[in-house]
Computed example of a mutant assay.
Amino acid sequence: MPSRLKEFLKRWVITTAAVLVALYIVRGISYETIGGLLVATFILGILNTLFRPLKIFLGIFTLGIFTLVFNALLLYWVGSLVRSFHVDSFKAAFWGALIISIVSFILNIITGTGGSQIKVRKQAPPPAPPPPRHDDGGGPVIDV
């Protein structure tokens, strides 16, 4: 299997899992058939791939807020394109997009998909501070 196809299938499975989590958390997002859910997540994945450069470019200037709004618009649009997948309002799409983003991020880290990785390195502890110096007992020392 070509690596690009394998990568796309991994992302599709992750997106589908994330959408399923959003379905159970956010009121106003639903599906009638598993086929409808799979088609909706497939289209969502394709649209995310097509618009990713634009989302990243505009997200930089808006500190990521635009990315969330854009994802909500895509989710809302997919809800109108796929008959057996429903997104009732932009509010539901917004909260759904937030949940999908968070779950996808976590699943991408766990699976190593999409370049999201966490590396843990163990370093040597910092050196201990030097012990305090004690005078011969005469009080403060002033160097001239």
Rank of each mutant, 00 (worst) to 15 (best):
G45C: 10
K55D: 07
V39P: 03
V120E: 09
K10P: 00
A124T: 14
I46R: 07
P127N: 05
G115H: 08
F105G: 10
T62S: 14
A124E: 14
G64C: 12
L54V: 13
G115Q: 07
F61Y: 13
Q117F: 13
S3E: 05
W12T: 13
R121D: 06
V82S: 10
K55I: 15
L58Y: 15
V78E: 00
R4K: 13
A40K: 02
W95M: 09
F42N: 02
D135Y: 14
L98I: 09
N108E: 12
F70D: 01
V69R: 01
P127C: 08
V103S: 05
I109T: 09
A22R: 01
L63S: 13
G115C: 13
A22K: 01
Q123G: 12
I102G: 04
I142D: 01
G59A: 09
L44A: 11
K119L: 13
T111V: 04
G114V: 09
I14Q: 00
T16H: 01
P140E: 08
G137C: 04
K122C: 12
S104Y: 09
S104P: 06
A92F: 14
W77I: 08
T33K: 03
G64Y: 09
S89V: 10
H134V: 11
F70E: 04
V21L: 11
T67S: 14
L37E: 01
P126A: 11
K55P: 00
A18L: 01
S104E: 00
A22I: 03
P132R: 07
L68D: 07
P127R: 07
K10Q: 05
F57H: 12
D88S: 12
I14Y: 02
L20N: 06
V87T: 10
S89P: 12
Q123N: 14
T67Y: 08
T16F: 01
G114K: 02
I109L: 06
N48F: 09
F51V: 14
I142S: 08
